[in-house]
């Protein structure tokens, strides 16, 4: 039985803060930060937006593209995030309720830094293949936290991507998935701590690159594919540099990476990151083209997917706004408004 993507949807908040503006506040050199990260600005949520509201907007877009799928056909809802609004009370129930999917559905929140929603896609694939559900939905959504003045502040942003997974009416078939996971302390946030901490340069080689590269290799070995079999490749995008370096090590070209590289103008949307990259590619891909997707979540692990686009994509992708629309729709805010929106003060 085939399994794959029936509908996909993106959402990015309207507001942006530039690297220049953040660097101005902290007296740092914007030029070297921009060239070091390959990021020029990042998305900022409104005061009334959080992980749940972003997830609902992305999920609504996924439903538009899934066309004939009714809310009551969805048997599982997973929301992957590291910024769930409640410590205890699931985001997934709010999303399911807002979409009219409740009450005959299983739902849960997932947390695995930036890769929880790709784990949710794998769970949906399993439930669909086993015949327990007809369709499942996994949403990656974050309003990422970063301590004022920390290096993360230049990239930690907000966005969401939702995927409806099923066995029929596929816009893209998932032909295989593979994961690579180890206990690596590269990035963490303790209970009740407002901001995450990280291991600086340690987040590179033993963390991001080790997992992204080995997971991608593992999938290609299992399927007997090679980089040249793929038209596009998407890796998790903590910045603009890391995915390009991973691609080079694996033997992919810049042309294969670029269409999904959405980090430059919206920042690192954490759980939304690699899935927004995939959505940007589905917005332009043609039937028969192959896509390799590898997420990364600190802590650490990667999930890889080999995806083949079907004929149905042409008919479906125009039913909801493309990622490009959300990237280009913007209004700049200064650091003071950003600080208010992200509650970076103690009142």
């Amino acid at each position: 039985m085939k399994v794959g993507i029936v509908g996909y949807g993106a959402y990015v908040p309207k507001y942006r803060i530039s690297v220049e503006e953040i660097a101005r506040v902290w007296g740092q050199d914007a030029g070297s930060i921009k060239s070091g990260l390959d990021v020029i600005e990042k998305s900022v949520p409104s005061l009334d937006e959080d992980t749940a509201t972003l997830a609902v907007e992305a999920a609504k877009n996924a439903f538009k593209r899934a066309k004939n799928v009714r809310a009551s056909d969805i048997g599982a809802v997973y929301v992957g995030s590291e910024s769930h609004p409640y410590a205890v009370k699931p985001t997934a129930v709010t999303v399911a309720e807002a979409l009219g999917i409740t009450p005959h559905v299983t739902a849960a929140d997932l947390e695995f830094a930036c890769k929880a929603a790709t784990a949710g896609i794998q769970a949906c694939m399993g439930l669909v293949r086993a015949g327990y559900i007809r369709y499942g939905m996994s949403v990656g959504s974050d309003t990422a936290q970063s301590a004022p003045g920390d290096a993360l502040e230049y990239t930690a942003s907000a966005g969401a991507a939702a995927y409806i997974i099923g066995g029929e009416n596929l816009v893209a078939e998932i032909e295989g998935t593979y994961s690579y996971t180890q206990d690596v302390p590269d990035f963490w946030r303790r209970e009740c701590a407002p901001y995450p901490r990280h291991g600086g340069r340690f987040t590179g080689e033993p963390a991001y690159f080790e997992h992204v590269i080995k997971s991608s290799k593992g999938l290609m070995e299992r399927l007997g594919t090679k980089p040249s079999d793929y038209k596009y490749v998407v890796f998790h995008m903590p910045n603009g540099k890391f995915p390009l370096r991973a691609a080079k090590v694996l033997g992919f070209t810049i042309e294969q990476v670029n269409p999904g590289l959405v980090v430059e103008k919206i920042g690192n949307t954490y759980s939304g990151s690699s899935l927004l990259g995939l959505a940007a590619i589905l917005d332009i891909a043609k039937a028969g083209e192959r896509i390799l997707l590898t997420s990364y979540g600190s802590g650490a692990g990667s999930d890889s997917f080999s995806i083949i686009v079907t004929d149905l994509i042409e008919e479906r992708r125009g039913l909801a706004p493309p990622v490009k629309y959300y990237v280009e729709r913007k209004e700049y805010v200064d650091y003071a408004v950003y600080a208010r929106n992200r509650c970076l003060y103690r009142g």
Binding site: D48, E49, D50, A52, T53, V56, K60, P85, R329
Partner: peptide, 27 residues
């Protein structure tokens, strides 16, 4: 669109619901 309507306080229930935004069909 779907937004936060209000919060009781830092530890209370978050009320969500519809608000409206201008339609942008430029895409």
């Amino acid at each position: 669109c779907f937004r936060k309507l209000f919060e009781q306080d830092d530890e209370g229930i978050i009320s969500y619901g519809f608000k409206f935004r201008p339609i942008d069909d430029s895409w």
